[in-house]
Amino acid sequence: NQASVVANQLIPINTALTLVAMRSEVVTPVGIPAEDIPRLVSMQVNRAVPLGTTLMPDMVKGYA
C-alpha cells in the first residue's frame, strides 16, 4: 500500500504548504504520493483543507 499526503493541520485556502502541515499515511482513496512531499513545499492549496484530509492533485496549485 502506498502512503499518501494527509493534512496534519487545517490548511487555509491559498496557504503555502510546509513540512509541518503534511504527513504521510496509507489511506483510501489514494491521494498525492508521500514521496512528493518535498515537491509540495511552498506550493499553495486552492481550497481549505481540513485536518486529516488526503491531499488530491487538484487541491494543489501547479501540482497536476
Results as ranks from 00 to 15, higher is better:
31 G>A: 04
27 V>N: 03
23 R>E: 03
13 I>L: 12
34 A>P: 05
32 I>N: 01
39 R>C: 13
44 Q>A: 09
25 E>Q: 10
40 L>F: 01
39 R>V: 10
38 P>C: 15
54 T>A: 05
56 M>T: 11
1 N>C: 14
2 Q>T: 12
29 P>W: 05
28 T>I: 11
57 P>A: 11
43 M>I: 04
33 P>G: 04
51 L>P: 14
59 M>G: 00
28 T>K: 08
14 N>K: 05
42 S>P: 01
20 V>C: 12
49 V>Q: 02
6 V>F: 03
17 L>P: 00
19 L>Q: 07
42 S>G: 15
2 Q>V: 13
63 Y>R: 01
38 P>H: 11
15 T>M: 10
1 N>H: 12
18 T>F: 05
35 E>A: 14
42 S>I: 04
28 T>P: 01
3 A>F: 13
4 S>E: 01
14 N>P: 00
9 Q>G: 05
47 R>W: 06
14 N>D: 13
61 K>M: 13
28 T>L: 10
24 S>R: 11
13 I>N: 14
38 P>F: 14
60 V>L: 07
27 V>A: 05
24 S>A: 15
15 T>E: 09
41 V>C: 06
41 V>F: 00
7 A>F: 03
54 T>W: 03
22 M>I: 08
23 R>M: 05
43 M>Q: 06
51 L>N: 11
14 N>F: 10
26 V>Y: 14
61 K>Q: 11
24 S>I: 13
17 L>T: 00
24 S>D: 06
39 R>L: 13
8 N>P: 02
33 P>M: 06
41 V>I: 12
13 I>D: 10
54 T>R: 00
50 P>I: 07
25 E>N: 07
17 L>E: 03
12 P>Y: 07
15 T>G: 09
10 L>A: 14
30 V>D: 08
51 L>D: 11
34 A>R: 04
35 E>C: 09
4 S>C: 04
25 E>R: 10
51 L>M: 15
29 P>L: 05
4 S>D: 00
21 A>W: 06
25 E>H: 07
9 Q>I: 12
31 G>L: 02
11 I>H: 02
25 E>G: 09
59 M>H: 07
56 M>V: 07
50 P>E: 12
19 L>V: 07
64 A>G: 12
32 I>W: 01
1 N>Y: 15
20 V>S: 15
45 V>E: 01
39 R>I: 13
2 Q>L: 13
52 G>P: 01
38 P>M: 11
47 R>P: 03
45 V>T: 09
41 V>W: 00
4 S>V: 01
22 M>G: 01
30 V>R: 09
59 M>E: 02
9 Q>T: 13
62 G>C: 11
1 N>V: 15
64 A>V: 14
59 M>Q: 04
1 N>P: 15
5 V>R: 01
46 N>E: 07
42 S>Q: 10
37 I>L: 11
59 M>N: 04
36 D>W: 11
39 R>N: 09
3 A>N: 08
3 A>Q: 09
31 G>F: 04
53 T>S: 13
56 M>S: 06
49 V>I: 15
39 R>T: 09
33 P>Q: 05
27 V>Q: 02
54 T>V: 10
61 K>V: 14
20 V>W: 15
14 N>G: 14
36 D>E: 15
29 P>S: 04
50 P>H: 09
49 V>M: 02
17 L>M: 04
52 G>N: 13
24 S>G: 11
53 T>A: 13
42 S>A: 12
12 P>K: 10
36 D>N: 12
56 M>G: 04
9 Q>N: 08
39 R>G: 07
58 D>A: 12
10 L>F: 15
57 P>Y: 10
13 I>K: 14
47 R>S: 06
42 S>H: 15
55 L>K: 01
61 K>C: 15
40 L>V: 04
31 G>V: 02
31 G>N: 02
33 P>E: 02
46 N>S: 12
32 I>M: 03
12 P>E: 11
28 T>S: 11
21 A>P: 00
15 T>Y: 13
63 Y>K: 01
11 I>F: 02
12 P>F: 06
60 V>P: 02
17 L>Y: 00
45 V>L: 07
60 V>K: 01
11 I>K: 00
43 M>D: 02
55 L>D: 00
34 A>F: 05
60 V>A: 01
14 N>W: 15
11 I>L: 09
61 K>A: 11
64 A>Q: 13
59 M>P: 02
38 P>Q: 11
41 V>T: 05
17 L>S: 01
19 L>P: 06
14 N>V: 05
37 I>N: 02
32 I>A: 00
58 D>I: 09
61 K>I: 14
12 P>W: 05
46 N>T: 13
59 M>L: 03
9 Q>K: 13
20 V>Q: 14
23 R>L: 05
39 R>W: 11
41 V>R: 03
15 T>H: 12
63 Y>G: 01
33 P>T: 07
48 A>S: 14
56 M>E: 06
34 A>C: 08
31 G>Q: 01
21 A>Q: 12
44 Q>S: 14
45 V>G: 02
13 I>A: 14
33 P>L: 08
15 T>K: 08
3 A>D: 05
3 A>Y: 12
53 T>E: 11
18 T>L: 06
19 L>H: 07
52 G>S: 05
61 K>E: 11
8 N>K: 07
31 G>Y: 05
30 V>N: 11
45 V>N: 00
28 T>H: 11
51 L>V: 15
46 N>C: 10
32 I>F: 02
12 P>I: 06
4 S>K: 01
56 M>K: 07
27 V>P: 00
26 V>G: 03
15 T>N: 07
48 A>T: 15
52 G>K: 01
53 T>R: 10
18 T>E: 07
23 R>Y: 05
44 Q>L: 14
51 L>I: 14
5 V>N: 00
9 Q>D: 08
6 V>T: 04
43 M>E: 02
48 A>H: 14
7 A>V: 09
2 Q>Y: 15
47 R>V: 13
52 G>C: 04
8 N>W: 05
45 V>F: 00
35 E>M: 10
10 L>I: 10
19 L>N: 06
47 R>F: 06
18 T>I: 06
56 M>P: 03
50 P>N: 08
64 A>T: 15
59 M>A: 07
5 V>S: 01
58 D>R: 09
31 G>C: 04
64 A>S: 15
8 N>V: 07
37 I>Y: 03
45 V>R: 00
13 I>V: 14
6 V>Y: 02
12 P>Q: 10
64 A>D: 11
29 P>N: 03
11 I>E: 02
24 S>M: 11
52 G>D: 09
55 L>P: 02
2 Q>G: 14
35 E>R: 10
35 E>I: 12
64 A>P: 09
32 I>L: 04
44 Q>Y: 15
37 I>Q: 01
57 P>M: 06
38 P>N: 13
9 Q>H: 13
56 M>N: 04
4 S>L: 01
36 D>H: 14
59 M>K: 00
2 Q>F: 13
19 L>S: 06
31 G>K: 03
